[in-house]
Design a protein around this nucleic acid. Structure first.
Ligand code: SF4
Ligand code: SF4
Lengths: 150, 150
DNA sequence: AAGATTAAAGAGTATTTTATCTTAAATAAA
DNA sequence: TTTATTTAAGATAAAATACTCTTTAATCTT
């Protein structure tokens, strides 16, 4: 009931994003990123991070290489990787298609009083996540901003 | 990694909100709302719901009465209860003051690349939650809407 | 080919969240 | 005053999430 943070994504999502951001901003280093090094740099459990990056690899966001000097690297350019794709990979493909409240068995036909309200917020978040790339975040060059009107 | 919904609030928060919405839209019934009845109506575990409503009572949103014909009722009018107050009561007072990602030990001084981005979203949500009352939601009379500009 | 390095995969543990069960306290009605 | 009703409170259990450990497979270096 207290101490909890406003948190939309799980730890897996958080760690995955942090790792990807780290990678995006250290790309000069051409080769593969060593997961052990990253886990130490980011202070995330090596095994846990490995699992998360594994998923990102399976989802086609990263590619991996085993053996000496192996590791993980981008499969696509950070410019082409949307926040949406990352979150969907780590939180489930339907992340942006469900209710923010998480209520089951409801929808357009029997909407709760909050429906229209949540849909506004959700669609807005969805749009932002779909139109923002990893590179956008890493370089913080975006100029878009939310604004409330009317 | 799958099956998870985009869920900002916990089950406690969801159940609490649902109960409050139910109460707000059944207010003709002047007396106290029986928690057992509500738990059946809303299909929420009686004991769990009781705990949640207990918190709302402790936080001054509801008032309770024990004994026959007892139950819970609004302490303030639904018009005066903001969504923000409800969520803060159930999710923690700092819910809207922390990072959406939940990362600890960071802030304005050492912002991660997502900082400005998240702050936009967060402030927007915060504003909406603070300016929306339970009655607004229950009657769905709000005309405000999000819109992305620039 | 042999050994070292590194990610993949799967099993197991710990912590947190959600839910239930039991007992206590307050109130009302008989 | 006794009994029934109802919320409060605390202990316990189940489920979900987060994290760790161990083994396997791929790749490189020698
Ligand atoms: S009706 Fe309410 S609970 Fe259902 S999806 Fe819409 S906002 Fe969510
Ligand atoms: S710097 Fe990043 S992690 Fe920290 S509060 Fe801002 S958005 Fe959240």
């Amino acid at each position: 009931m207290s101490g909890r943070l406003m948190k939309v994504i799980s730890k897996s999502g958080e760690y995955g994003l942090r790792a990807l951001l780290y990678m995006a901003s250290n790309q000069k280093n051409k080769g593969y990123f060593n997961i052990r090094d990253m886990s130490e740099e980011l202070d995330i459990s090596f095994h846990f991070l490995t699992k998360i990056l594994q998923v990102l690899t399976q989802k086609g966001i990263l590619q991996s290489y085993r053996g000496p000097n192996g590791g993980v690297g981008f499969f696509k350019n950070p410019e082409e990787i949307t926040l949406s794709a990352i979150i969907r990979a780590l939180e489930g493909d339907d992340f942006f298609d469900k209710c923010l409240l998480g209520l089951p068995g409801c929808g357009e036909r029997q909407p709760c009083p909050m429906h229209a309200y949540w849909m506004d917020i959700r669609n807005n978040l969805k749009y932002e996540f779909e139109t923002t790339s990893l590179a956008d975040l890493g370089q913080d060059t975006r100029e878009k901003q939310f604004r409330l009107i009317a």
